[in-house]
Computed example of a mutant assay.
Amino acid sequence: MEEILRLFPELIRKHVQAKIGKRWEALQEIRFRLNKPIELVFDHQTEWLTEIKPSQKDGLHVLNQISQFSLYRLEDELREGYVTIEGGHRVGLAGKVNTINGSVKAIQHIAFMNIRIAKEKIGAATTILPYLHGENYANTLIVGAPQTGKTTIIRDLTRLIASGWRNVPAKKVAVIDERSEIGASLKGIPQHNLGFRADVMDACPKAEGMMMMIRSMSPDVLVVDEIGSKQDVQALMEAIHAGVVVICTIHGQTLSELKKRPSLHVLFHHHVFERIVVLNKQKTPGQVNAIYDQHEHNIFSKKYMGVTPY
């Protein structure tokens, strides 16, 4: 986790490293607030570094490390409120917002940061994989609140589909990785294992990237993280009409909640998703609460839990 530790000034780095110890696998977030104790969020508990409170100088140090001493080059990311760093880790930012004509231009005077730890968990998707494949892969929506493991699951699904499992041959998979979280690409090369037949469009807006990959890479399966806008939905519909299987994630708590969103109406009206996987926020990230078919029947059974696809 050197890419995380290098962000901090030396004294804070030593305290953080000592507090975490050998528990990096259980760490979900490091919350860094000026003049307040540092918060460490683990899978099952939250702990605090009360002996040290970051100063404004410490905050500037972290921002310089994140931006490589050029906040200007991160103007688009600052407008979105987060920056993805090496390793696929995402740093959320908050502070005073600068607006123009009512729209956010950037975040200034950043005083709050949330470092979300990206984790590559090989085998994380093996529980749900048997539900997603019949004669072919099913168009699939993975639903979950923050920290439920959506990206971890979709990353491992990509690896399995692009490498093949049991007697199922590998498929060509196109990954639209807008925030560089799925593949954690460095200069275009994924640092996470996405399988033999995966092609990645890194740091590209989802809607544009989907169309580009369909035209240029002829994928069997299209993977995209965190859909939601009307443009995303339109691109998904075009991909499906082109005969490409779509697997994507979305922020949400329940299926009924998603069906109330106007931008998603067309997807549910046409029963686009043959499988809808709902993750459980109350358990360890990646745990499944329900799997619905296109008729919204819950087909999830614990008898498949732990089944290996290899």
Rank of each mutant, 00 (worst) to 15 (best):
Q56P: 04
M210D: 05
V91F: 04
M211Y: 00
K22P: 01
A198E: 08
S70H: 05
L141M: 10
D202A: 15
R116Q: 08
M211T: 10
I107D: 06
G21A: 05
K96R: 15
I30C: 04
I38M: 09
I240V: 15
I176W: 09
M237W: 04
Q253R: 06
T46H: 09
H109S: 12
D199E: 13
G149I: 11
Y82F: 14
E2Q: 09
T308R: 12
A118I: 02
E181N: 11
P205L: 05
Y310E: 08
N101T: 00
G149Q: 11
M212W: 00
A174E: 03
I161Q: 05
I214K: 00
F196V: 14
G144I: 10
T151G: 05
P309S: 06
I176S: 12
V91K: 07
G123D: 03
W24R: 08
L27Y: 00
E75D: 02
A145R: 11
N298A: 04
L27E: 06
E39R: 14
V143C: 00
Q68P: 00
N35L: 14
G195D: 02
K281N: 00
K259S: 06
Y292T: 09
I117Y: 06
I12D: 01
H297N: 15
T50H: 07
F42V: 02
H295M: 10
Q17L: 14
K259L: 05
V143L: 03
R275K: 14
T50N: 13
Y304V: 08
V104G: 02
E39F: 02
R31K: 06
R31A: 07
G134D: 10
Q108N: 11
V307W: 04
H44P: 05
K230Y: 07
P169T: 06
L11N: 11
L236M: 13
A174Y: 02
I153H: 05
A138K: 14
D76C: 00
E2Y: 00
G243C: 01
S55L: 13
I276V: 13
K150L: 12
T46I: 15
Y292F: 13
I52Y: 13
A290V: 04
